[in-house]
Design a protein around this nucleic acid. Structure first.
Length: 117
DNA sequence: ATTCTGACAGCAA
DNA sequence: TTTGCTGCCAGAA
């Protein structure tokens, strides 16, 4: 598969790929993706990459990526304050007070799911 | 080249 | 318990 030497376009592209792998109705966290990418604690980089994802095609479900609290921290980048929430609710994810309900239950960890035998 | 920022996470007080 | 600072990585000025 991918070699560990692809440092050029790896990070951002990988973030997009992993984010697209998140099933509808599920959500993941920056730290989970970061860990899957091998950056571990640099979860902030995932958010930075997702910021660029708005120019990416196809659409990257960045609304499925939240912080470890299950909070819609990135909703402010969606243009409107309700856009991210609307997208999540459209997929069956309940959001209350800018926070995902049952976050742990719908949490999708790429490090676990993609590494699953 | 150096410095700061950034949709976070972890640890200390 | 909550609040705040530091650490992390990569990109932009």
């Amino acid at each position: 598969m991918e070699k560990s030497g692809n440092r050029d376009n790896c990070f951002f592209s990988r973030v997009y790929e992993v984010t697209r792998l998140v099933p509808g109705g599920r959500v993941t966290s920056y730290g989970a993706i970061a860990r899957y990418l091998g950056t571990g604690r640099s979860a902030i980089m995932v958010g930075w990459a997702l910021n660029k994802s708005f120019s990416q095609s196809p659409f990257v479900p960045a609304h499925r990526v939240l912080n470890r609290n299950g909070l819609l921290t990135g909703k402010r980048h969606f243009g409107t304050s309700t856009a991210m929430q609307q997208l999540l609710e459209n997929e069956g994810v309940k959001v209350e007070n800018d926070k995902v309900v049952e976050f742990k239950k719908i949490f999708w960890d790429p490090s676990a799911e993609l590494n699953k035998p």
